[in-house]
Write a protein that binds this DNA or RNA. Structure first.
Ligand SMILES: [Zn+2]
Ligand SMILES: [Zn+2]
Ligand SMILES: [Zn+2]
Ligand SMILES: [Zn+2]
Lengths: 132, 132
DNA sequence: TCGCACACGTTATAGCATAACGCAATTGAT
DNA sequence: ATCAATTGCGTTATGCTATAACGTGTGCGA
């Protein structure tokens, strides 16, 4: 699941996400890539699907947006569950891991024999700068 | 924020969710209430908005659906962050609280002065029965 | 009685995501 | 070399999710 060489479209989408200062929706990405020949949502969604699979992009379920992984190179997935703090004012996203949270959730799933495939942890609120 | 008497529409929507054996999308709710005079999505969304506010219904961000609170009467919000395990096969949802998870996330936010307004924890996977 | 808050109904629109078709390039076994 | 399978890509169409904007009626306190 580590990232092979990206195709042209995958590279374009990843580049847009990496340069952005916050999460972007698929349609926003599409708009940013019209000059590069993108015409339809599927071109974006198909690239995102692969980038998510490779673990270099994360999807923020609570805001239907996508963001480049904040920990390039280290294959984020291996660090366990990823959590996000999303500022609803400035859009900034902070990505972090907490092994104790992982452990507690894993304990819960083990006790109930629930097989978790994908876990979402997202906090929406105000960052320090915006709360002031 | 405890629940006042529900209006007619709110009661109808809540009733549908309570009787359902899993989460429902707003449009599914709409379809189930057409016989009761519902004609437009807003009728559902407006009722849901209040039910969420009262804490008797939860929104599952990762599947764009809504579910009745599994802990009627005790005002779920007071127990801290709510977490869900969602079976992608049978649709069953398990709702739970974990104070240690709460504490860890709260510690993180305090350390970074992030003011969390709404936290989502959702695990998607297979329940014991479906994994077998 | 006036003004306000709130629920409600309706129409229209915006925003998010995928189905289904066909084509081209790549790969990898025979 | 050839064929089949896989993968990426482009396009059109469609479906699902959510809200904007406008207007109506009702209840209730100033
Ligand atoms: Zn990451
Ligand atoms: Zn901020
Ligand atoms: Zn609850
Ligand atoms: Zn199941």
């Amino acid at each position: 699941m580590s990232a092979p060489a990206l195709t042209k479209n995958q590279a374009l989408v990843f580049d847009v996400l990496e340069k952005a200062d916050g999460p972007l929706s698929a349609y926003t990405i599409l708009d940013k890539l019209r000059d590069h020949g993108f015409r339809a949502p599927l071109q974006v969604y198909r690239a995102l699907e692969k980038l998510l699979e490779y673990g270099v992009v994360h999807r923020l379920e609570s805001i239907n947006s996508f963001v480049a992984c904040a920990h390039p190179g280290e294959n984020c997935h291996k660090h366990g569950i990823v959590a996000f703090a999303i500022c609803e004012s400035c859009g900034q996203v902070m990505e972090f891991h907490d092994h104790e949270v992982d452990n507690r959730l894993t304990d819960w799933t083990k006790a109930r024999k629930f097989k978790a495939e994908k876990t979402t942890i997202e906090m929406r609120g105000l960052c320090e700068a915006c709360a002031a």
